[in-house]
Amino acid sequence: MSVFEVYKQSLSVKYKASLCSKAFLLYLVIVLLTFFLPFLFCYKSHGLWLKYDKYLEQPEVEFKFEYLLISETSDPLVPLICGIYPEKVITTGFCPMIKVAEEDRNMDGIKDNLNFQLNLMTNETFDINSVTLLLFFNFKIHELCLLEMESMAVITHSSAIPGGKLDLIGDLKLVQKTPLDCSLKNPIRMKNSILQFETSDWLFNIYKDYLKRSIYTKLDNVLFKWTKGRSYQQPFIINVKINYDEVEIVYKPKFWQIIKWAWMQYFSILILTLFIFKKVKRFLFTNHIVNTRIAKLT
């Protein structure tokens, strides 16, 4: 005759022990280890508390139509200088024309690159041996951190062969010395003018003060082509293309982000320890490794 299962009931066995017994002491040790070991493991792996985090953002970059050009010539005593600060710097060069175009390739309302062309005319029969060009931008980020600052890109190149044209392409990159302390209510603003001409060695001081900042921009992945030779009646031409690529922002996380990160790591290891010590308790008590009293059997 066939037999069918018509009802099923699990049996539950309860093991009890007094507070002063070895069984209770063992139980207490297991509970402490179950919840303390995940914390210890996360802490020792240096990953429990999130000290900083980072993300990618497409910055809003806008060329300020401000530049400064310093060109060394065949006469080392006569550099050619032209730019947008004639009242502060004695200009010895003549830049009759600049062309500026910023493009938004993906039509997202954020500019993606800058095309800059400058023509340098000389009144004397000077050869151009080196070029230093400073370009100035308004730089903004706003997704998780609010940052507004005046930034700079420095282009410098020299050659033993007199040149007639310099073509250059590079990426505008963000440099951070410390993580940003982000707040949507208190934006970080760095609006102090980069150009300072109080001393005679003003160019070096501009570099020095700029690099003291905790955050700034620079050109990276730079490729250039130096074209030699030109007639003295022709201008020296500088063509620059700068890409405004995504930048990596490093910032200090807030309290709840730190707690969320810590809890995710702790909980993932806690599940494993709960499973392991459950097996340990079953082995210890069912095999009567320590004395307990079976209080109820259902």
Rank of each mutant, 00 (worst) to 15 (best):
L134F: 15
F116G: 03
K140F: 00
I155M: 00
R189D: 01
C182I: 10
M121V: 01
F139Q: 05
E148V: 11
S158R: 07
A160R: 05
D167G: 05
N138E: 08
L114Y: 04
F137W: 08
D171W: 03
F139T: 11
N119L: 10
M149Y: 02
L174G: 15
N123T: 09
D167H: 07
D127I: 06
I169Q: 14
E124N: 10
L120T: 03
I161L: 11
L146I: 11
E148H: 11
I188E: 12
C145M: 06
C145V: 10
M121Q: 07
N113Y: 08
E124D: 12
N138G: 07
V131F: 04
V175W: 03
M149V: 00
D167V: 06
G164Y: 00
I155V: 05
T156F: 13
L118Q: 06
M149E: 09
D167E: 12
L144D: 02
A160T: 11
N186V: 15
S151Q: 07
D167A: 04
P187D: 11
H157V: 09
V131Q: 02
S130C: 08
L168S: 04
S158W: 07
L144W: 03
L172P: 13
R189A: 12
K173Y: 11
F126S: 01
F136R: 02
S158A: 10
M152L: 15
Q176M: 12
K177R: 15
L180M: 15
V175R: 11
L120Y: 06
S130N: 14
T156S: 15
L135V: 09
L147D: 04
E148P: 00
G163A: 09
G163T: 10
L172M: 15
P179S: 06
F136H: 01
L184M: 15
G164S: 04
N119M: 08
L133W: 07
K165M: 14
N115R: 11
T125D: 08
R189F: 02
L174A: 12
K173T: 14
D167K: 12
K177L: 14
I155C: 04
N113I: 03
L180T: 06
F116S: 01
G164T: 09
